[in-house]
Amino acid sequence: MQNKINNDKLRAKTFNLMYALLRFIIIFGLGFIIVKPLLAKVLLSFMSPQDLLDNTVKLIPKTPSLYYWKKMLDQISLPTSVINSVLLSFLVAVVQTAACTVIGYGLARFKFKGSGLAFAFVIIMMIVPYQTINIAQYQSFVNLSVFGIELVDTFWPILILAFTGLGIREGLYIYLMRENFKGLSNTLEEAAYIDGAGVFKTFWAVMLPNARTMMTTVFLFSFCWEWTDTVYPKTYLVDTPLLATAISTVSVRNDLAWDNIGTQMAQCAASLFVAIPLIFLFVLCQRSFVKSISQTGLSGG
């Protein structure tokens, strides 16, 4: 009897151990696949031209140099592009976070005629790729110039799209905010009403503090996606230097006789340069992001 129990225990223990091992292999393997290009980019960007000619160098530079970093930094029109990128991404992120919070609240806590239809439009606007109607959209912004308003080559088109829920993947943010507000209990809101607070005051003073975690997450997404987006800038901001669009313009000529490998190393350096602020921002928002996984009520439906 005792023996059998011991056997069972041993079996369970072995099973758990094997399972932990399998889990480790899966997580480590896939994690490695995800991290590898980033690591490779870091290493490649510090190559010197000699390293690229050297057949024995594969991944780790023998004579590390800042050659390609310098070449890249010369070409991305500093500091204008950084200022523009920071300004644009920050403004868009603020506008999108505000708009999505308000829209999400309206969709989650009010039962008015057509609220279902409004949500359906959020889904439709999310699925329709923004590139497909971009030509007509561009033309309608150009047409506004008839009234003396020159919108193209300013931030306005992108900001207007962000405010009206048509920014990049904005449907998703609206959905996340809606779920967040749906998950909150009614009692807080009712108590505020009974105390005589109006709709807007209730929203501002009672509901908004409960959405802070999700707002941080939305801000993070929004900033990062605007920071790296090239489609809207290439349409509406052709003459404005931005970091995201600068990456593909970096090139290194005549330094190696073959291939465009030097250009690609410089572009690796450029994309790292563009990614650095995002990594900082992520580390900054990381805690609230991890919290938003475990705390907010993403109840679905």
Binding site: G31, I34, L44, F221, T228, A244, Q264, C268, V290
Partner: peptide
């Protein structure tokens, strides 16, 4: 582990993703 699996959402998008393939291709591994 969660952070690693999430990071591509902000670091493998738009302008950054095109250089990923370069890195994959040129890295010796």
């Amino acid at each position: 582990a969660r952070i690693i699996f999430f990071v591509p959402v902000i670091l493998a998008v738009g302008a950054l993703s095109s250089t990923d393939s370069t890195a994959m291709y040129y890295s010796g591994a």
